[in-house]
Amino acid sequence: MPDRHEEERSEEGSVGLPDLGDNIDSLTFEQILEMDDDEEEREFSKSIVFSFFEQAVQTFKKMDDALKEGDLKQLSSLGHFLKGSSATLGLTKVKDSCEKIQHFGQMKDEAGTTDVDDKNLCLSRIKQTLATVKVEYAEVEKVLKKFYAS
């Protein structure tokens, strides 16, 4: 039976990844993995990923608090912050949802192109999107923890 790494290697000689699902852009994530000195330990990429987990949990708590306070500016800022971190790792659905939160916090539509004059509508959209992004985050956290445990 081939070892784990033989199984994962693609024909192009890259590290090759197990199926990370639709939530993670494998090309972007693979660029992070290429920075690891040791393919067995993966200390560098693991530290980045697990730091992101901590950062995301803290940011979600701040978003919950800002939502309770109706602080659109803070919600937009936090959405922008988490969008950047998740994009770096290739967490596409998390990134896209955070971008929507950023736009809603700026009182725009989800694409950020049209002004929305209703603060309560924007807060309601953020509440829905925040619930969605937490589910998307939980999915990628599960996949990545499994990847680093193997």
Results as ranks from 00 to 15, higher is better:
D19H: 04
D19L: 01
L20C: 03
L20P: 09
G21F: 06
G21W: 07
G21I: 05
G21D: 02
D22G: 04
D22P: 09
N23R: 14
I24G: 07
D25L: 09
D25Q: 10
D25C: 11
D25S: 10
S26W: 03
S26Q: 08
L27T: 15
T28I: 05
F29Y: 09
F29K: 03
E30G: 13
E30L: 09
I32Q: 02
I32S: 01
L33W: 01
L33F: 01
E34C: 07
M35S: 00
M35H: 00
M35V: 00
M35K: 00
D36G: 03
D36A: 03
D37L: 10
E41Y: 07
R42H: 11
E43L: 02
F44D: 05
F44K: 04
S45N: 01
S45T: 04
S45C: 01
K46G: 03
K46S: 04
S47F: 00
S47D: 01
V49E: 00
F50H: 00
F50K: 00
F50E: 00
S51W: 01
S51T: 15
F52H: 02
F53S: 00
E54Q: 06
E54M: 03
Q55H: 08
Q55L: 08
Q55F: 09
A56N: 08
V57F: 06
V57L: 06
Q58I: 07
Q58F: 06
Q58N: 11
F60I: 09
F60E: 02
K61E: 10
K62A: 14
M63E: 06
M63A: 03
D64W: 05
D64G: 07
D65Y: 13
D65F: 13
D65C: 13
A66S: 12
A66Y: 03
A66I: 08
L67I: 09
L67S: 05
L67M: 08
K68L: 10
K68R: 09
K68V: 03
K68E: 11
E69V: 07
L72F: 08
L72V: 12
K73Q: 05
Q74V: 15
Q74H: 09
Q74N: 12
L75E: 04
L75Y: 12
L75I: 13
S76I: 13
S76C: 10
G79Q: 04
H80F: 13
H80N: 12
F81M: 12
F81L: 14
L82A: 13
K83G: 13
G84N: 05
G84V: 11
G84W: 09
G84L: 06
G84M: 06
S86Y: 07
S86L: 04
S86P: 06
S86H: 06
A87T: 11
A87K: 05
T88L: 07
L89A: 01
L89N: 01
L89C: 02
L89F: 04
L91T: 08
L91H: 06
L91E: 04
L91C: 06
L91W: 13
K93V: 15
K93P: 05
K95G: 12
K95R: 15
D96G: 10
D96W: 03
D96I: 10
S97D: 14
C98W: 10
C98H: 03
C98D: 04
C98E: 06
K100E: 12
K100F: 14
I101V: 15
I101S: 02
I101T: 12
Q102Y: 02
Q102P: 03
H103Y: 14
H103S: 11
G105V: 08
Q106R: 15
